[in-house]
Design a protein around this nucleic acid. Sequence first.
DNA 1: CAGTAGGTCGGAAAGTTTCCTACTGCCGCA
DNA 2: TGCGGCAGTAGGAAACTTTCCGACCTACTG
Lengths: 411, 411
Amino acid sequence: MMAGPQALLWSINARAVLEAVDTLGPTGRPELVQETGLSKTTVAQALQELLARGVVREAGLDTERRGPAATLYGTDPGGGYAIGVDVEVERVTAVLVDLAGAEVARASRPTTGVAQGVAQVVAEVVAEVVSELVTEPATELVTELVTELVTEPATELVTELVTAPDAELVTAPVDGVRVGQVVIGVPALVARDGRSIRASRGLPGAAHLGAELQTLLPYPVLLENDVNLAAVAEQRRGAGRGVDDFVLLRVGTGLGAGVVIGGRLHRGFAGGAGEVGFLPHPATALGGEVLGARQIGQVARELGVEGSPAELFARAAAGEASALAVAGAVARRLAHVIGAIALVIEPELFVVGGPGTEVLLEPVRRHLAADAPDLVVGVTGSGVPGDAVLQGAALVAHEHVRERVFTEATT
Amino acid sequence: MMAGPQALLWSINARAVLEAVDTLGPTGRPELVQETGLSKTTVAQALQELLARGVVREAGLDTERRGPAATLYGTDPGGGYAIGVDVEVERVTAVLVDLAGAEVARASRPTTGVAQGVAQVVAEVVAEVVSELVTEPATELVTELVTELVTEPATELVTELVTAPDAELVTAPVDGVRVGQVVIGVPALVARDGRSIRASRGLPGAAHLGAELQTLLPYPVLLENDVNLAAVAEQRRGAGRGVDDFVLLRVGTGLGAGVVIGGRLHRGFAGGAGEVGFLPHPATALGGEVLGARQIGQVARELGVEGSPAELFARAAAGEASALAVAGAVARRLAHVIGAIALVIEPELFVVGGPGTEVLLEPVRRHLAADAPDLVVGVTGSGVPGDAVLQGAALVAHEHVRERVFTEATT
DNA sequence: CAGTAGGTCGGAAAGTTTCCTACTGCCGCA
DNA sequence: TGCGGCAGTAGGAAACTTTCCGACCTACTG
């Protein structure tokens, strides 16, 4: 059990104060007292220590209410950075977020198409966002800090950043810019260790991407299935907010599912949970895929139409009859998959994602109502604006960093 | 957050001591010191307080080692009782366990067959185990306590129990016998509130069983699906020990699955997770059942055999060719269901339960190896001796009681 | 005689309450 | 319209309380 020393109390209290500061944003002490339930003195002491350790900084004054101006405290966004990467078949995108979770830099590059090049491209994009943080947004940081009437730490920070040597960016951590975690979303089946790739839809020959990247990057690297990351994004910022159990179904190159159970992403024993594209279907032989780009294309050809899934969905949304028929057929299969998943885990909600898939929602609901009237699940479209995979990767990386920095600061 | 007062520390330490006492059984103080990592003084204080609150009692002396005899401390088994009930189609069984989790009393009755009678039968069986505790094992308690050289509390307890009025047993809690929770396993789909029944395989018209029982019993009542409870039993005492994610498949009246994810039972949004008997199968139309008693019977008839699933499995185990053929067909469908479940959540292990189902294991493994060679899951038989549902019910009830008593004692 | 269980005492650490000071906005009075 | 007091709030210091730990001491048994 090991629940011993009194120092534990300090950890608990400091953590409570830190969490409150982080979730509430710039906050005065009295509010923190109320939020944490701790006494004034304890909060003051904790803040003093956290201030000394550099996780918390003074963030302006509150002159709104009467009485003396209350100094506001906030977490130091520069306390640790996290990077999320989305590796798509034809493009690699990266974002760098600060400890507050705000996007600081973004970069994107086309893949060369060569399998061996993927790791290199990722490393380059990562280096790009880091350098962008080091050089460009320094001014932004200054203005931000100046508007908050705290000038000293700003200049300090800027000099620190500007003097950082650009050349060593890729091979060594830049002084003052601590990147604590890189999370990389890949269209592949990733083992639970976050390194090895078991099977891949769009990255042939990238089995050792994790190890390769770790040699190229001086930061801790974690691979993750792209759909899983999109599910995380939905959970935190999209349609899955506040929902304990939901399943994200992503229609695109293949059909993939991100399973969130009990508020946590469920990866499966070997990272293979959510491979629902291969669920049995009357129309397919055992082991065949129900719903991938190939299947959609085949259905389309049978109906005399051509195009990628996204194109077809867009044309269906525009009202084109034959494309609508394709969408209807896809929706039918999707409803079938949803029904099968519901029989196993009965989540509260299904989120349908992927380009142009809004057009599928209504037909899917109709099919479900007709085929499985007892089913009480909801079906919604994605609630994440922009690249859900990228955001999910950034969220996961950010959480890793946040957890590490916070526990470090309260131990 | 509310992590305020210093009293929290006492809670933590007391809880640590209590858990140690509970898991280690009768233990001396020095061992508790080592186990908890706390100081001698703190452990002594905590024990004193827990002793005063009645959760912990002195449980004999350790005269083995040299030096003065160490007084041993153990949790008081009479601190709270829990009852688990298994409602089968033709029989109702109940066990009463003490705070240590040991079985104290057991009773069983045939159901009258009338739907309205089920609640009544359950109430009677519950009353029976309670009265059995009150009257019979008092002597057992005495002997037990006497052997431990602690005479005072024993006599006290006995008089208390013996003077308890038998007549009020069903309508009011017996003085000195605190039954904290009754958990009832039913062959039905139970909503997550543990009260209402959504659909039932073997209990027609028992939709309000929960409410009925609550009026008949003076203890908190919780309903739960029988397969789910069996899964809990497997997790704690059976094949699922130490496995985070596994699925129990129970072949019998119908095919049901108990899904354990992250060490926790997953019920689904409306308690409908694990209804895998209706998963799509090439041989069945959408909505048909894959594998129930009826399906097994049908397969058997086609092969020219007759009998209940349990009988057929037993005959297959005995080597009867036609029964073996039936088992093979059932195993084939079971493997199909396992494959489908694995695609959704990919658990580490599948446990196959139900009377006589050991004969299915090998054929299921063969089918899986042939049809889905990439699948890395294990397939095992049940590891729970006796009635898994009953044990699961008792375990869940016991945990409720334990948690309540422990938190009460350390607050 | 040595090794161990149990108890007691003093010190240390942490948190809470209370009191005090300093500052600002608002209201009322001249 | 200008000015002074009142009220409300932030920040800090000191005293008190709770809790835990280490060390010393006693008692007991092989």
